[in-house]
Design a protein around this nucleic acid. Structure first.
Lengths: 137, 137
DNA sequence: CGCACCGGTATACTTTAGTAAACCAGTATC
DNA sequence: GATACTGGTTTACTAAAGTATACCGGTGCG
């Protein structure tokens, strides 16, 4: 099995195969809210309104929709307690959802590096031997 | 500085901080085509029409738009050879674009795992058949 | 001449993502 | 009896993403 990341580049056939997986992941995780919900749920199980407060900015409609999608993909589980006062609904990150940690970590790591690069445009990461072309700003 | 990914979960403040970076990365990489273009360019520099053939399915308009965005973010570079016959334009993955390899790798790894899980659902990875609400229908 | 390739752009359209706000039944609180 | 909290749904909208198709000047090929 070819391990991408170790080889310098892939050929076209490998690209197409690899891209299917990458797109699968991105379809599930893409959009503005999915990762935010998952990350928030890493903190522990939460109820609907609690989640809505924590994720900050999300509307009830989006939260509801995203939670459904996340649930059918097995990334979290929804449980209802009908006996308690106003019916408590709890969302819990499924074990399968926790397998996303490496992905979240990679995204977070690159994203924070990138954030530094664009805020302090010195040469902290990608400026060692090569002097790039002085193209347009 | 807490290292996410190593700890089991983060608190709410850490989530918000981490999410900014994750969203930064996702904004740059999200959408249907950006990663596909980058992965295709891992194969080596390519010209516009070549890229359009390799990425398969992308329209000239989208390719043009995505290439521009990728270029202004420093992930690839565009070079024009005006001397040759019908003006050759070459797109090359920038060194900075190669720093995405860990991200691509993580996405690819999880995505292919996930793809197997949904295609061969041998083990009950996520049995979500439970309905514990005997209340209203 | 006629066609295809090159690197795109222009126009028009559909689809999806996301926002904003109101609304619901039930309970508990003031 | 009004208000707020619970877990959402509904409707209506905007903005962004993406698709489809045609078009452009220039060149080389038969």
């Amino acid at each position: 099995m070819p391990l991408p990341g170790s080889s310098p580049h892939l050929n076209t056939k490998e690209c197409n195969s690899a891209m299917r997986s990458v797109r699968d992941a991105l379809d599930l995780l893409g959009g503005k809210w999915k990762l935010a919900i998952i990350v928030s749920l890493l903190d522990g199980p939460k109820r609907f309104k609690q989640l809505q407060r924590d994720v900050s900015g999300i509307t009830a409609k989006m939260l509801s929709k995203e939670l459904k999608e996340l649930e059918v993909n097995g990334l979290l589980s929804r449980s209802v307690q009908a006996d308690v006062a106003p019916v408590a609904v709890t969302y819990t990150l499924a074990p399968y959802g926790e397998t996303l940690l490496p992905v979240i970590d990679a995204l977070h790591h690159w994203g924070s590096q990138h954030r530094m690069n664009i805020m302090h445009p010195q040469e902290p990461v990608a400026a060692k031997t090569e002097v790039s072309a002085p193209v347009a700003a």
